[in-house]
Design a protein around this nucleic acid. Structure first.
Lengths: 267, 267
DNA sequence: ACATGTGAAGTCTTTCACAGCC
DNA sequence: GGCTGTGAAAGACTTCACATGT
């Protein structure tokens, strides 16, 4: 709707694949550590190990940036730090606002990794008048009435949302209207934003659910390949929780993709 | 090295692609919202919109779980909630320990989304004796000396690391040795774990750097396609930060992948 | 001799488009 | 008519393996 371009190639940047971009910070961190230990050069092998990836991937990633290594030798640590920093845009500093100063917002405000790489907490914003003026991590909280003014005056383009889910979308809308074009969302909601605005989300609950999935599989593997063993033992409530399946279940119609999911459901 | 199997198919589970698994929690959240509003059925189109994905992807994802929809109608909300919950292993409850009760750890302990889906904070653990016994989010902090005992007694298999980076690896090692097989890591370090242990990481700084990358690109696009315009304007400091390039830079040898990166570096 | 840089092959993921069923 | 379920095509990402340069 509205937007002209029919599904442009997603967030694909001047030839650098998104997956590569997502790893650059990892490399940068490993390189920074080497730099602090005054290590002059690294091989792709060593650096890859430090970053937790394999060396072929690392070399391919770097190849998108240019030819910054020396054959037979490796990469100059300082030089690479600079190139990656520049590529990521960390040679300039980015003012960031955090909206929603609850437990999480406060923790984020105090997070050291923020300042370490070109990010500066320009303002903390909360809707609770009782919070206004209270310093959190050394920065006084401002009231959300002033959100637009703050964004514009400081030229903020990155916003962090740490509010309850219920208000995340409206906060998002206001941020975007005020000029923010990148959002890091900690609220467990899907945000919708206009074209040209980037959203990344961090969701604890989702991460745990993914872990639980794999955890369950491990448990299942130990004994037989049997899934869904107990789960609904208290027949009463479990049965109540499970609807009678979409309209007149015909005997064996319900099957798993491999055809052997032990149909755990009220027949 | 050491591990027998030569690169097994990564974390690939009984036919369900990892990318799909990562989206199931999203669908589940959207479905739960519908369920609370007593909506009986949804089409793939509607549900996809609510989850922020496109409908073809959603249908493909669901097809890995089985045939849970009804053609011409859609999906039964309650039934799908149940099926996805079961697939994710959320019909059982998972005791979780959080190690490192600083600002972040405390925020995580108080996070509502935890309890909402089968996850139960079994214990909060911190190395600081001053913290021991202090209740955080209603749960008394225990000392890390007792880590092994706690894990074993409660049968904990999921651990959350919210410690400083410096001690994350040793905490991780102890968790794993005590029987934890899934770790959610908030410390900005690469954790190495034995085969069979899953690690997921959440790193604020990395997310911001990725946003900064795209943000920079947007800024560059506005004016000409010229990247790296200012950035190193204050020539003095910028130049000092850049090493003389790996050994005798021969004039035009340094090039970007497309051959047109305006080499922003001291010649 | 050694380690980068990269075509080519392989694998995973997304999207298309339509057969099949309600 | 409408919507699911899915082969097949397209695309993105990873891995291989070796030519290339020092």
């Amino acid at each position: 709707m509205a937007t002209g371009r029919t599904h442009r190639p997603a967030t694909r940047s001047r030839g650098i694949p998104e997956a590569t971009v997502a790893r650059l910070p990892l490399y940068l961190r490993a390189l920074t550590a080497l730099s602090e230990r005054s290590v002059p050069t690294v091989s792709s092998e060593e650096l890859a190990a430090a970053a937790g990836v394999n060396s072929a991937k690392l070399r391919k990633d770097f190849s998108y940036l240019g030819s910054y290594g020396t054959r037979g030798v490796g990469y100059d640590v300082e030089y690479l730090v600079y190139q990656i920093s520049r590529e990521l845009g960390l040679t300039q500093d980015w003012p960031v606002v955090i909206v929603g100063i609850g437990n999480l917002g406060a923790a984020l405000a105090g997070y050291g990794g923020f300042a370490s790489r070109g990010f500066r907490v320009a303002a903390l914003i909360d809707a609770d008048p009782a919070m206004t003026g209270k310093p959190v991590a050394g920065i006084p909280v401002q009231h959300s009435d002033d959100l637009e003014k703050i964004i514009e005056e400081d030229g903020v383009s990155i916003g962090v949302i740490a509010t309850p889910a219920g208000v995340a979308q409206q906060v998002c809308d206001r941020l975007v209207a005020a000029g923010v074009t990148s959002i890091l969302n900690f609220a467990p909601t899907v945000l919708s934003v206009p074209d040209g605005v980037d959203v990344r989300k961090v969701d604890l609950s989702i991460e745990l659910q993914i872990l639980a999935f794999h955890e369950q599989r491990k448990a299942g593997e130990e004994s037989g390949a049997d899934t869904g063993a107990d789960t609904g033992s208290e027949a009463g409530s479990a049965a109540a929780a499970v609807p009678p399946a979409p309209r007149g279940a015909t005997g064996g119609s319900r099957k798993g993709p491999d055809g052997d999911v032990p149909a755990v459901m009220p027949a």
